[in-house]
Design a protein around this nucleic acid. Structure first.
Lengths: 330, 330
DNA sequence: GAAATGGAGTGAAACATTACACGGACAGTA
DNA sequence: TACTGTCCGTGTAATGTTTCACTCCATTTC
């Protein structure tokens, strides 16, 4: 009743219960133990308020039940909801999540992968902006939205199909002249295929389109100038705009309604991509291509936890859908 | 040249470099070692691609350089930006972040605290919705927005001052009749003080006000009904509304502009709270009380890492500001 | 009834690191 | 030369688990 000095260990429990160390270990791990012994040990654990040290356990068994998750940041709603879903999936399987923000910095990303390896995590889930990421073959890594090659499984939405769907939906809703707006990195990654899908959709439907693509770092005003150029006599050259993300769709919509006096969707329709909404949809007048965040998360976790399958698919492509609201729980 | 089977250990490095184990440890930890020895060891580390096992290190030294961070989820922009800031602060100090989502569930929260203790983290930062949280005195815990008592440091914005500031700013901008809308938990916590501050502000300025407070789980339509009740002949009884969060402000604004045909801010002004914006501010016509997210994060990390100060403050209250934009980097 | 079988408790080894006591070498001082 | 002190490499103990070979006892089988 007076040994409250330091954190109790398995040895303390064993002594308290009058059993051997191995027996306590069995009780803790749910291995078969005589009923009377189990009770004695459980009582001792309760009394001492004992908790297993996951560090000792991890050291000994080389299994840490920890997955490192790396995305650029938690500011973008897409990233934070994605991480939220991954976390749900992991904790349902009794795994812990070590989080790293990469800030879009390839060097930092590389360093964090090393850190995670040092941490002896059981796996890494990574949305990477470093096309030359070096990764030790010892720790399984799953990539989101970037295909590194057959050794590293990659999970992504059907970006091509989504781009195509965006074009189709705009036309279906009566648009006759489309535009595609994109800001983003020059790196090749899966989301870039949205453009290709969009173009394919336009050409299949024989609808004219314009592209405006600017690189990361370019000020947003480049878009406003582009829109102004195509604005004559109170009318825009396009009646349908596909923005590469919802967040961009929101900004573009603001520019059109506030500064150019256009009505959305009456004068011009806007469709975004991602399907993440933070606020109510009440006044939301843009549509979107919804990424299946839960499915992406579930596939990532499944892949990172299951031993590197022999004939595992290298690239998993998940179906998107058309909608106004997000699919993730609020 | 052929020992690529398993992960190299310190012993392997020692053998490779022809030195003792302790010497390798010193090199790794930057303790004084002869120049020639250091070089030999570094070369061996390089050659074997050795990384220290943070599990063995954590076991032995009882220091894990890991902080557990618990918030309800990463869906709310306030939570995700907060966690983003905390993560920045932690990684700047070479700490790792173990993330747990509590889903507002007190039982799960309690379980997660136990899990974190088992994980032997160096500390816990927690935005808790469990007023009876049991926490072991062994691991330092810092609470956000909930005061548990003098033993547990609590960090929060000046919610009272913020509520008061909201009232003052509305009046300063010409409002003559105010309303306060809140949805939230019945639990006592710091953000509840926004209401008290608002009331104090109204009474100090001698401005009439109305309160509408609904509990978590109540459908939002309760607010719309409330607004309808105060809507006569195309005019609302109030010309200034203080919403307890930005996210609510956004929804209310949608209801007023889309469904009741009112203009914001011409007919009625809206002020929110938090200062988190995910999209551009272009069309944003509500103001807000900005919480100092970086300061909150910095204080939490500072407190959780520094040994329990003798005369440390139990409740840290950080100044808010009035604004349209958020303060966090985008 | 004796031998085979199997379930379950025991205690020591192993995991990868850090901490520490020890000792050898070398320099400074008298 | 001898004494003292400093610097630093060495090797062992210790950290809290899991694993495994052993042992013991009870039950089954012929």
């Amino acid at each position: 009743m007076s040994e409250s000095k330091s954190v109790p260990t398995m040895k303390d429990v064993a002594r308290e219960a009058g059993v051997a160390l191995g027996t306590v270990s069995k009780v803790v791990n749910g291995l078969p133990v005589g009923e009377d012994y189990r009770l004695r040990v459980e009582k001792a654990i309760e009394k001492l308020n004992y908790r297993v040290s996951s560090y000792a356990r991890g050291l000994r068994s080389n299994k840490t039940y920890t997955i490192a998750v790396m995305v650029p940041n938690l500011i973008s709603p897409f990233f934070s909801k994605l991480v939220n879903c991954i976390n749900h999936e992991l904790s349902a399987r009794k795994y812990r999540m070590l989080f790293y923000a990469t800030d879009y910095d390839p060097a930092q990303e590389q360093e964090l992968v090393h850190l995670a390896e040092q941490q002896k995590v059981d796996g890494i889930i990574c949305l990477s902006y470093n096309p030359h990421l070096q990764v030790s073959p010892d720790v399984p890594l799953v990539s989101i939205d970037r295909y590194f090659g057959a050794q590293i499984p990659c999970v992504a939405s059907d970006n091509y199909g989504g781009g195509r769907l965006a074009a189709e939906k705009l036309v279906e809703n009566g648009c006759k002249n489309l535009a595609f707006l994109r800001i983003g990195s020059k790196l090749t990654n899966e989301p870039n295929k949205r453009k290709d899908g969009f173009i394919a959709g336009c050409e299949a439907l024989d609808v004219p389109y314009t592209l405006k693509i600017i690189d990361d770092g370019t000020p947003y005003t480049a878009f406003f100038e582009f829109l102004e150029e195509h604005f004559h006599d109170g009318k825009l050259d396009f009646d349908g705009i596909f923005c590469v993300t919802d967040s961009m769709a929101h900004v573009i919509r603001g520019a059109l309604t506030q500064h150019m006096g256009l009505r959305v969707p009456e004068d011009v329709q806007i469709i975004g991509f991602d399907g993440v909404r933070h606020f109510g949809d009440l006044e939301y007048t843009c549509s979107t291509i919804v990424q299946p965040l839960e499915a992406i998360a579930a596939n990532c976790v499944e892949l990172v936890l299951s031993p590197r399958g022999e004939n595992a698919p290298a690239l998993i492509c998940l179906p998107v859908s058309y909608g106004w609201g997000g699919t993730t729980r609020e």
